[in-house]
Design a protein around this nucleic acid. Structure first.
Lengths: 125, 125
DNA sequence: CTCCGTGCAAACGATTTGCACTATG
DNA sequence: CATAGTGCAAATCGTTTGCACGGAG
């Protein structure tokens, strides 16, 4: 755990946001002005593999990093592309297939809601 | 509807697969050797806007194009990254929130299963 | 003719990598 | 010292765009 790595992790965890690598880079740069974007990418990869953060593939071009590694769903804003955790009770949602479908062995699923976030709704009025 | 555009559409529709732009390009090139990848991208965009095909954002880096424009779910193979349609009865799955969640106005959702496809399962034995 | 669509190459945005240097163990 | 990690720049991958040419109305 290097100094850079620690700052990156801290910054993501305290942000409570689902930042893209370059957004996190901008924030970390305020504390470590000489850090490079490559270092941020490399450490995000290492932290992901270590299970300390999670890399999320979502709508949009960039991957986002999540301080919350538990298995949960997300909602993203179609206007500003912000991503939020969704506190959805999966049992409540109904059963989602496990086991086998169409010859596939199911290992998981990803449920992503899309919508307009509170901030963007406000801007509309 | 230009000649190139027609061939691209045909090739995607007859493939019955969820091809990425470059995969489709390779197939189309067999019939139109002088076509460029840019033309494929441009026409896929046009065909998508025309509602004749659908562009799917899924796990992995590339976007995939779907001959089936109806609203449905997908399953993708974590080994070979193949993407298939999933014939899942959405009512049966239970219900998936609509309206409002956490201040967001929900406009839709995307459900993507992950698993190991029949072909890849076989390779394992 | 007049354009829209094409092919080509170059530009682009996100991410990764090669390399020489630095810090740390 | 040995080596894992860094900063920088260049490379890569998927996709888009500028431009001059070509073919259909």
């Amino acid at each position: 755990m290097t100094h850079q790595r620690e700052i990156i992790l801290q910054e993501l965890q305290t942000s409570r946001e689902h930042l893209a690598a370059d957004e996190l880079y901008e924030r970390v740069k305020k504390r470590l002005p000489r850090i490079s974007l490559a270092t941020v990418y490399r450490n995000l990869e290492i932290l992901t593999n270590a299970g300390l953060i999670a890399k999320r593939e979502v709508s949009g071009r960039q991957k986002r990093f999540d301080y919350d590694v538990t298995d949960h769903d997300h909602i993203f804003c179609i206007r500003c592309h912000r991503l939020d955790n969704l506190d959805l009770n999966r049992e409540e949602v109904g059963y989602l297939p496990v086991g086998e479908i169409d010859g596939y062995t199911i290992t998981g699923y990803r449920l992503e809601f899309a919508g307009v976030c509170p901030d963007c709704r406000q801007k509309n009025e």
